[in-house]
Simulated assay, not measured.
Amino acid sequence: MTHRLTLLETVPLTPDVKTYIFDKPDGYSFTPGQATEMALDRDGWRDEKRPFTFTSDPDAGILSFTIKSYPDHDGVTEKLPGLVPGDSVLIDDAWGAIEDKGPGVFIAGGAGITPFLGILRHRERHGSLKGCHLIFANRAPEDIILRPLWETLPDLKTTFVVAEGARDGLRKGQVDGSLLDDVVDDFSGRFYLCGPPPMEDAVAELLSERGVSEGNLIREE
C-alpha cells in the first residue's frame, strides 16, 4: 500500500546527512530497524523508489528518516536536500530483516548506522543498553552521524573508526580482524551488521572465522 507523507522539517546532522521529519499516516506501523521504499511525489519520480530506514520511534506521532545525500548521484538522494516543508513523498509499507533481537555488537559503516539508530534509541527509551556495543566506521571524524548522542547514551559502549583524520580517541583504519580482536570481548553473542555491501561481506566473513553463527548475525537479507 502506498502512503503520502508531508515534510514537516529537515535537520542537518553532517555536511551530507539530514534527518527528514514527516507526518505519520493513521495506523502506519513498523518496528525499530525496519525500512520502506520511498519516492518523490512529483512527475517523473513517483516510480523511482529507494529504500530508507525509519529513525523515529514507532510510538512517535511522526516518521523520520536520516539520509545521506550523494550529490554526484543523479537520483532520489541527490534530490532530497531540495525538499522544503510542505513537499510530499510516497512510501510503501514497512519491511526489513534487521530488528532488535537483544543486546549485542552493532557494526555500522557510514549511513548503515540508520537501522541501529532506531533500535538503540528505542532500547534506551524503553529498557536498557547494557550489553550493547556500537562499532561505527566512517571516512573522517566529521562524517560520524550523531556522535554526541552515541557518546552520551547510558551504558552504550562505543568504538569509532575513521579512515583518515583520527583524533580524540578515534581509531584509525577500518573494521578488520585486528580491530575486532582488540575491541570485542566475546564472539558468542549477537552481532548486528549494516553498511556498504563490500564492507558487510568482508566483516561477515571475519565474524564467521571467529565463530559467529549465521543465527547470531543480524543483517539485511
Rank of each mutant, 00 (worst) to 15 (best):
187 F>L: 07
34 Q>P: 01
23 D>C: 06
19 T>C: 05
144 I>G: 04
9 E>G: 01
81 P>G: 12
205 E>K: 14
2 T>F: 04
146 L>F: 08
113 I>F: 07
211 G>P: 12
75 G>H: 13
56 S>P: 05
186 D>F: 02
118 G>C: 06
88 S>D: 09
53 T>E: 08
50 R>C: 01
80 L>D: 08
43 D>G: 00
8 L>W: 00
82 G>D: 15
11 V>T: 15
120 L>H: 10
191 F>N: 05
139 R>H: 14
199 M>P: 14
28 Y>F: 15
212 V>Y: 01
175 V>F: 08
10 T>L: 09
96 G>S: 05
98 I>G: 03
23 D>E: 08
102 G>Y: 12
151 E>F: 01
155 D>T: 01
106 F>R: 00
141 P>R: 10
44 G>P: 12
179 L>P: 03
108 A>V: 05
47 D>Q: 06
71 P>Q: 11
32 P>Y: 03
173 G>H: 08
87 D>F: 06
112 G>F: 09
174 Q>K: 13
183 V>I: 10
36 T>K: 05
204 A>Q: 12
176 D>E: 07
198 P>C: 02
181 D>F: 00
72 D>E: 15
88 S>I: 03
168 D>W: 11
8 L>Y: 01
220 E>L: 04
119 I>K: 02
152 T>E: 15
148 P>H: 11
9 E>M: 10
118 G>S: 14
129 L>R: 09
13 L>G: 10
6 T>P: 09
140 A>S: 14
102 G>V: 07
30 F>I: 01
120 L>V: 10
102 G>P: 11
138 N>I: 11
40 L>R: 03
72 D>Q: 15
69 S>G: 08
173 G>L: 11
90 L>S: 02
66 T>D: 08
22 F>N: 07
134 L>D: 10
82 G>Q: 15
71 P>N: 06
147 R>N: 12
107 I>F: 04
102 G>M: 12
195 G>K: 03
24 K>V: 02
